[in-house]
């Protein structure tokens, strides 16, 4: 087994190109669990821990967070709380401070776990990932990055280097429904972000990836209770919900319609 500790992005990309099967470790909170459970093993590991440029952080234009920026930073940074309150909220309700102190924005997107909080809000916020390899850099909307259970669009030689979140033009709500402990992942999560001319509603944690239906969102009339209920019911109908220890598919379907309605009411104001 080898453990690589590169210090620059270039070095990481060269390593990843030469060892496409190597597992990239960011904060380690997700990998730690799946390794302990025997679900993942690897001969080659590339740690991003010493790559300082991946911790770059800016809020001057878009919110710009290097892949190694922690949940805790995004949760607590005053500019994020002021200008991207929905994003700060979604990162701030993950697990416990112990986890948020090490879990990273790049990690939570790359692991593509259906039950994580941030992806739904990042999709709703039109966030984009910068994805790099020795072949160059490309920008992938988060909506297209996560394609299924633990599955992303990343090629074997690529890593996420940075996430950009445009400045919101309207209000945002993040609703997390927990059915077990207060440190649990969501059984249902709803991110709703208002923008000029509409709203983006994204439901997380109930199926293989965050679910966003622009055609349903287009039917919403802000403040109108009837259309709010219809949008909520349409989301519940459309999403193929799954069963797990946090709730049955039937329960999730029922709660999706409740929580989408409540999220839309929150952003109506």
């Amino acid at each position: 087994m080898s453990w690589h500790m590169p210090t620059t992005v270039d070095e990481v990309l060269r390593l990843k190109a030469s060892k496409p099967d190597a597992t990239v470790v960011a904060g380690g909170t997700f990998l730690g669990l799946v390794i302990r459970q025997g679900l993942l093993d690897s001969d080659e590991w590339i740690s991003l821990q010493n790559v300082d440029e991946l911790r770059a952080f800016g809020t001057a234009g878009d919110l710009s967070a290097g892949a190694m920026v922690t949940h805790r930073r995004i949760e607590t940074e005053p500019a994020v709380r002021r200008d991207w309150p929905g994003v700060a909220e979604a990162f701030g309700v993950v697990a416990s401070p112990r986890v948020r102190n090490v879990a990273t924005i790049g990690g939570v997107l790359a692991d593509a776990d259906y039950a994580s909080d941030p992806p739904a809000m990042l999709v709703a916020s039109r966030a984009v990932a910068e994805v790099a390899s020795v072949r160059g850099m490309r920008r992938v909307p988060i909506e297209e990055l996560i394609v299924g259970h633990y599955e992303t669009e990343l090629d074997d030689d690529e890593i996420i280097t940075r996430v950009l979140v445009p400045r919101p033009t309207g209000s945002a709500a993040y609703r997390k429904l927990r059915t077990r402990s207060r440190e649990d992942r969501p059984a249902v999560s709803v991110a709703a972000v208002r923008e000029t001319g509409g709203v983006r509603v994204v439901v997380g944690a109930v199926s293989d990836r965050p679910r966003h239906y622009p055609d349903i969102c287009a039917e919403w009339r802000p403040g109108d209770e009837q259309s709010t209920r219809e949008v909520a019911a349409a989301y519940a109908d459309r999403i193929p919900c799954l069963d797990d220890g946090r709730g049955s598919a039937e329960y999730r379907r029922q709660v999706v319609s409740v929580e989408v309605r409540r999220a839309l009411m929150q952003v109506s104001r």
Partner: peptide, 9 residues
């Protein structure tokens, strides 16, 4: 495991 068996926090 403790992600699937929650105890009170």
């Amino acid at each position: 495991n403790l992600s699937e068996y929650n105890i009170a926090s």
